[in-house]
Amino acid sequence: MLVTEQDRLRQDIDALVERHGHARSALMPILQEVQRNYSLVSPYAMQVIADRLGIHPVEVHGVVSFYSYLSEKPKGRYIVRLCRTISCDMAGKTRIARQLENDLGIEFGETSRDGAFTLEWANCIGMCDQGPALLVNEKVFTRVTPAQVHEIIAECRAIFGNQAHQLREGLHS
């Protein structure tokens, strides 16, 4: 049976609501999982979540727009978050930033056209003793040198390509 994207999203959200409950306090965990699975919290997702929790969609939008790790626009498969706060700044984040832009071909705040990378600034990620530091999704890289930037990206690309391949396989089988 053909299920539309929206149906699938709705089913996913229903499963999350089943797990986390209908109370407003379930909102954050639900949003976080939707964000992780879909790389965004779409307007439709916000409305379904609002409906299930008995709150207004604009309230969900208010929450999504408040937190840096939730987004209403699609993010890349890999979100590179470079710390720009003082210790990493002093440790040379500017050169890392430039190299990231050069190697990814995008600027901060942008997502690459293939949907693989989003490049963002982060405020202090708690790696001040080992700056410059960055996060790629959940993984932390410390004492990053401009020369390492390419390696980090290449590693992600390898995995991304692999997964894309698997995804295609899955669709055809």
Binding site: H56, V58, H61, F66, Y67
Partner: peptide, 10 residues
């Protein structure tokens, strides 16, 4: 309880 307006952003 209409829920049209809310603070957006941070």
């Amino acid at each position: 309880e209409v829920g049209v307006l809310e603070a957006i952003g941070r």
